[in-house]
């Protein structure tokens, strides 16, 4: 059943892989706006949750309704993968690819692409092969490619998990900018400190269940469950 709404709605979602249940049953309404950090230990189901929201995979049962825009069509989403997926092409070609798909190539596409590469600081590398970039640069390239379509919703799967402090800082600053222009951001992390820095809202997942979901300050100051409070303390769920 499709319902009109401006946010993600999950209705009794169950998702399993190879007969093992990864997520669910989950029923949850995401808020319309905000910077949501999905946190939880390894294997809690964070990545699967994001992949379901982005329709990279389908749930076994249950229903997910996507946020609709004013015209009634689903709002534009972009996804940033934990392990960068880059085309075997140049940095420029990678960033421009979403525009090539929708608008072909033109002088304007070229200009826009360079603008986004400049935004993430990769304009000097635009001719290099994407494969030759460092880990941090690859992630920045993914971010440029995600932002170039001007998404209303940005979904990121542990975008800074393998990066050094400087790259992490750059990416966080770019995300903060996006949040400021009212892009809906949903992002996973294992890093509680990072979640504290960025989140307006936190969803805490453990063993495939949403254990807690609250406004960030409330969640960090007064977690309601013992699992959440031990995870906030030292990243371990007891």
């Amino acid at each position: 059943m499709v319902t009109m709404s401006a946010s993600f709605q999950l209705e009794k979602i169950i998702f399993s892989r190879d007969g093992r249940r990864i997520l669910g049953p989950i029923t949850h309404s995401f808020s319309e706006r905000g910077f949501t950090l999905v946190i939880g230990p390894n294997g809690a189901g964070k990545t699967s949750l994001l992949r379901l929201l982005h329709k990279l995979q389908e749930p076994d049962s249950g229903y997910i309704s996507l946020p609709l825009g004013k015209n009634g069509v689903p709002q534009r989403q972009s996804f940033v993968f934990q392990v960068p997926i880059l085309l075997h092409r140049s940095v420029f070609e990678n960033a421009a690819y979403p525009l090539h798909l929708s608008r072909g190539s033109s002088a304007q596409v070229r200009e826009e692409t360079m603008h986004y590469l400049e935004m993430v600081g990769l304009n000097d590398n635009h001719g290099a092969m994407a494969e030759d970039l460092s880990g941090g640069q690859k992630q920045l390239l993914q971010l440029a490619r995600a932002l170039i379509t001007r998404p209303k919703i940005l979904i990121l799967d542990e975008p800074t998990s393998n990066l050094d402090g400087r790259s992490t800082q750059t990416i966080e600053a770019l995300l903060a900018d996006q949040y400021r222009i009212d892009t809906r951001i949903i992002m996973t992390t294992q890093n509680v400190v990072q979640a504290r820095r960025l989140a307006s809202e936190v969803i805490f997942i453990h063993e495939g269940q949403i254990v807690e979901s609250a406004e960030a300050s409330a969640f960090f100051d007064k977690p309601l469950t013992p699992q959440a409070s031990s995870f906030i303390q030292d990243g371990i769920v007891r």
């Binding site: 982005h54 990279l56 993968f81 997926i85 085309l87 798909l101």
Partner: peptide, 10 residues
């Protein structure tokens, strides 16, 4: 290796 990206970009 490309599948998820191509699905994501519709």
């Amino acid at each position: 290796s490309y599948r998820d990206l191509l699905v994501s970009l519709t």
